[in-house]
Amino acid sequence: DARRQLDFFDASLGRAGGLAVLDYAGVPLPGPQELHTTTRLVHSYGLAQIAGRPDHAGIIDRGMSDLWTRHRDSQHGGYVWSVDSEGVADG
């Protein structure tokens, strides 16, 4: 079941490069990339990699990059809740 779910969530790596929320069919939904989605995917794929399942989609690297370059608030500290193609959607 875990492998099936990871195969499904590989589609979270959106066409624009961010990590997307998926609908029930596995299609990326429009809207901002939320912090909890990014961290959940990085954590889940990290555990899967430790268990021997390769990160075929590059979710870990993309998520870590997004956490450091898009979600992180370098001016005030901490992290913003959501980002979109134009920057901070909800700080």
Rank of each mutant, 00 (worst) to 15 (best):
R53T: 05
D73W: 02
R70C: 07
G87V: 01
D23L: 07
P32K: 04
H71L: 13
W68E: 15
L19E: 01
R15W: 12
G26T: 12
Q49S: 04
S82R: 05
H71F: 15
S74I: 09
L41K: 00
G46C: 10
Y79S: 09
L67S: 07
G87M: 00
P30N: 11
G87C: 01
P30Q: 10
M64S: 12
L13K: 12
A11N: 14
R4Y: 08
R70H: 11
R40D: 08
P30V: 03
A25C: 08
G26Y: 13
S82E: 06
R62N: 11
E34C: 08
D73S: 03
R70E: 04
L47T: 06
H36Y: 13
D66N: 13
L47E: 15
G18V: 06
G78F: 10
V27S: 13
F9K: 01
Q33D: 06
A2C: 07
H56T: 04
G26L: 13
R15V: 09
H76K: 07
V88G: 00
S74Y: 10
A51D: 09
V83A: 00
G31E: 01
V80E: 00
A89N: 13
S82I: 12
R4V: 14
V80T: 03
G63H: 03
S44M: 09
D23W: 12
D84F: 01
E34M: 08
Q49V: 04
S82Y: 06
A25K: 14
D1K: 10
A2V: 09
G63D: 10
P30L: 01
T38N: 05
V42I: 12
D55M: 03
Q33N: 06
P32L: 01
L35I: 13
R40C: 04
L22F: 11
L29Q: 15
A51R: 02
T38H: 00
R15I: 06
V83R: 00
D10P: 09
V42F: 00
Y45F: 15
T39G: 01
I60V: 14
D66W: 14
R72E: 08
V21L: 15
R3G: 09
G77E: 11
P30D: 14
A57P: 11
W81Q: 10
D55T: 02
W81M: 11
G31L: 03
V42Q: 00
L19G: 02
L35R: 04
I60E: 02
A51P: 01
A51F: 04
H71R: 05
L41R: 00
R53L: 05
I50W: 10
R40W: 05
S82K: 09
V83I: 14
Q75H: 03
G78I: 11
A57Q: 01
Q75C: 02
L35M: 11
S82P: 04
T39A: 04
A20K: 12
A2M: 08
D66I: 14
S65Q: 15
T39M: 05
